[in-house]
């Protein structure tokens, strides 16, 4: 049991989870991606890797906001291994 929990923790720490919504989710055909975490990852570096893997998302980048673990972040903010990064097109609720 304990080793099982250890394994899942190890796997989680190696990856960054990407969440996609609305127009981005439709363009990518998925709401969730997993990326391998790289040392020194930032919002910008993670976003760039997502766009490299899914070039159809490039057109959204100019207006995109990003949240790291549910908090709005800027390009230079760090993305630690295990973080959840949400790519947020301009919001239109209400």
């Amino acid at each position: 049991m304990a080793s099982g929990a250890g394994w899942s923790l190890t796997i989680r720490r190696m990856t960054v989870t990407i969440l996609l919504f609305a127009s981005l989710a439709e363009a990518a055909g998925t709401r969730r991606l997993e990326l391998a975490a790289e040392p020194g990852d930032t919002v910008a570096s993670v976003r760039d890797r997502v766009v490299s893997a899914h070039p159809q998302l490039a057109r959204f980048v100019p207006t995109l906001m990003v949240a790291v673990d549910e908090v709005y972040a800027t390009d230079d903010d760090p993305v630690p291994p295990g973080a959840t990064v949400a790519l947020i097109p301009p919001v239109s609720g209400g």
Binding site: F21, A22, S23, A67, A86, I88, V91, S92, G93, G94
Partner: peptide, 14 residues
């Protein structure tokens, strides 16, 4: 509050 919700809260309409 309503104006701020429409600018900040991650919700989208189609």
């Amino acid at each position: 509050l309503v104006n701020s919700i429409k600018k900040r809260v991650p919700v989208w309409k189609k």
